[in-house]
Structures are given as structure tokens and as C-alpha cells.
């Protein structure tokens, strides 16, 4: 699972009002090369929750992202490269996602988070 997906996911348990961001428990992180596409990054940038994104990147061991950015940073090639790397190339392979409100663990195995809920959580 890439950090892109992590930034979109929120906990879906009944009664949880703010299930975002899910905390990451790291088991194993892998890197996979992805083609760089600046247009996609510019398109995605406004949709990313930056703070959650930076925190997630730090958790998986990538601390080079700036704490605060505005859209002017998108002009810089260097920033885009870092953004691209963190967004698309870091995969959480093993570990878990934890709901910030209830502490429910969603295990991640082989890069696939198990988001299935139990009957009483729907």
C-alpha cells in the first residue's frame, strides 16, 4: 500500500466521527520504482492532507518532506521528486493501520490492508 492510498483511507467503523489519519504500525517497507509524472502530482497535491502525509512518511522512515508547503512549491523540481517518492514509491508491505479513535487494528499483509469490519462495527 502506498502512502497515496493511506492518505485517502479513513476508518469506517460505526460511531467514529474522525477516523483520519490511520496510524501506521510498520512491519516492513519496500520501495518500488514508478514513472515520474508531474501533472499527476500537481493534480493530487490539493487533495492531500499534508500534515498526515508528512507524519506517515516519517513513520515509514522518510523524513525529507517539508513540514509546511503551499502550492508554489510545485514549481520546484526537487520538491516534486521528493513528493513523488513519498507518495508513490514507498509501500507498506507488512504492518497494520490503527484507527485513531477506537484503536482498532487493520492488519496489512502482502501490501493489502484488511479493511473488513466485524458485524458489530457496521
Amino acid at each position: 500500500m502506498r502512502l497515496l492510498t493511506h492518505n485517502m483511507l479513513s476508518s469506517n467503523i460505526k460511531g467514529v466521527s474522525n477516523g483520519f489519519p490511520l496510524r501506521i504500525e510498520v512491519g516492513k517497507v519496500v520501495e518500488k520504482q514508478v514513472d515520474f509524472n508531474a501533472d499527476f502530482l500537481r493534480n493530487m497535491f490539493p487533495k492531500i492532507e499534508w500534515k498526515a502525509f508528512v507524519d506517515a512518511a516519517k513513520t515509514v522512515g522518510y523524513a525529507e518532506l517539508p513540514e509546511e508547503v503551499d502550492s508554489s512549491a510545485l514549481e520546484s523540481e526537487e520538491f516534486l521528486n521528493k513528493f513523488h517518492h513519498a507518495l508513490l514509491e514507498l509501500h507498506l508491505e507488512e504492518g497494520a493501520l490503527v484507527c485513531p479513535e477506537t484503536g482498532r487494528r487493520f492488519p496489512v499483509s502482502k501490501g493489502i490492508p484488511n479493511m473488513l469490519l466485524h458485524e458489530d462495527e457496521v
Binding site: 514508478v34 492532507e49 501490501g111 484488511n114
Partner: peptide, 24 residues
């Protein structure tokens, strides 16, 4: 996974709602 698809995969039940942030 075996086919090495490029997208991210989630194990989930659509009938339980998609746990995704609004408007993304």
C-alpha cells in the same frame, strides 16, 4: 498480486461503505 498490478489493493466489503476521505 501475482499479476503485479500497478494499483493499490484493499480487502474490504463495499456494502460496509468505502472508508475513504470525502472528495478525493
Amino acid at each position: 498480486l501475482e499479476r503485479e498490478v500497478e494499483g493499490d489493493l484493499l480487502l474490504g466489503d463495499m456494502g460496509q461503505g468505502l472508508g475513504l476521505r470525502p472528495g478525493v
